[in-house]
């Protein structure tokens, strides 16, 4: 495993290009429509899980209500395109901004709260958003949802097949990855991670934790909103039932299985969870039991997820002084 990692690390740009070319080319080999839909799901959930990973994995604020931001994005898109006939692209940005504003508002309590209280606030907020979407019939169509959301066009090119949406999702995912990568490897990302690791020390070094957390939340929510917007035009019909707490947990299970605090984790998590969804379709409802069991198993044996580092705070690792020489030495040998 470590050898593979070292190899990938050495040829990073090559591997990334190869992965990108592969992602662009392989759906062209005449897959069935249903298959392409699965690829779309994987990419969509990758960005969604990745955006949750920004809050959960990088700044360590366990948010459980990501479905709420997703919901806001989808409804903004649905309402503005069906009622006001505004075109897709500006509304997409608005979806993201709407969700980001919601994220900012929800993160205000985080200025005073930590850990579990934050989790509960996000959970509650997600549920409040869903309840409002369900009951504010004048705007959201209540339990009937919103139908006939128009397909997006791009200079006369209409996104009307799963394959075309695949490329849209891919584009968004790549942009998301690029921007997140740059953020994380900058002062901003470092301040997020310092909050995750040790908030007291971060403060003593002059990291303004409150605005940093707020920006982190807003950034995560922004991408959830973007994906929500695309989801709305992709399925052309939304109702509030999609955005339940279970959806939030579903997204969370992806980053937990894939590995929090890594950029690659959500991809792996999304592939595993969505792949399992398809593979386990024959056993019907039991597959949800499988997910739940999988989460517990992961927490027991690999809390850092499949791709996570075992020596990270997310792994619950206790650093042992005695082993210092050994592990330190190994690490140096790799790098």
């Amino acid at each position: 495993m470590s050898k593979i990692k070292a190899f990938v690390g050495k040829h990073r740009s090559l591997m990334l290009t190869a992965a990108l070319v592969f992602a662009i080319v392989f759906p062209l080999f005449g897959f069935k429509k249903s298959m392409v839909r699965i690829f779309c799901r994987i990419l969509m959930y990758f960005t969604l899980a990745g955006s949750l990973n920004i809050t959960n994995g990088y700044s360590g604020q366990t948010s459980l209500g990501h479905a709420g931001f997703y919901c806001i994005g989808a409804y903004v898109m649905a309402i503005l395109t069906t009622r006001f006939q505004i075109s897709f692209w500006p509304v997409l940005l608005l979806s993201g901004i709407g969700a980001a504003v919601a994220g900012l508002i929800i993160s205000v309590p985080t200025l005073r709260l930590k850990g579990i209280y934050l989790s509960i606030i996000t959970l509650g907020a997600s549920e409040v958003i869903r309840i409002i979407a369900l009951n504010w019939e004048g705007v959201t169509g209540g339990s009937f949802g919103i139908k006939d959301i128009p397909r997006p066009t791009f200079f006369g090119f209409t996104f009307d097949s799963p394959l075309k949406f695949y490329y849209l999702f891919l584009g968004v995912a790549v942009i998301f990855l690029l921007i997140s990568y740059r953020l994380i490897h900058s002062r901003v990302g470092r301040s997020w991670m310092s909050i995750r690791e040790n908030e007291l020390a971060a403060k003593s070094l002059g990291v303004r934790t409150a605005p940093a957390k707020m920006m982190n939340f807003a950034y995560g929510a922004f991408w959830a909103g973007i994906i929500g917007g695309i989801y709305a035009v992709y399925v052309q019909y939304i109702d509030s039932a999609v955005f339940s707490l279970d959806e939030g947990f579903n997204i969370m299970s992806m980053i937990i299985i894939g590995g929090q605090g890594t950029l690659i984790g959500p991809i792996v998590g999304s592939i595993v969870v969505n792949g399992l969804t398809e593979l386990l379709r024959p056993i019907g409802v039991w597959r949800f039991v499988m997910y739940a069991a999988l989460i517990i198993v992961m927490m027991w044996f690999r809390p850092q997820g499949l791709m996570g580092e075992s020596n990270s705070i997310l792994a619950g690792a206790k650093i042992k002084m005695r082993k210092a020489g050994k592990t330190g030495g190994k690490k140096e040998a790799i790098s």
Binding site: V285, F288, A292, L294, W300, P303, G316
Partner: peptide, 25 residues
């Protein structure tokens, strides 16, 4: 008991999903 809190938190989330879906079945 000695691990960071979020691990057992997520574990309880997973267990609650498990129970809920089992109950539904």
């Amino acid at each position: 008991f000695n691990a960071p809190r979020h691990i057992s938190l997520i574990c309880t989330v997973g267990f609650s999903m498990l129970l809920k879906n089992l109950a539904q079945i």
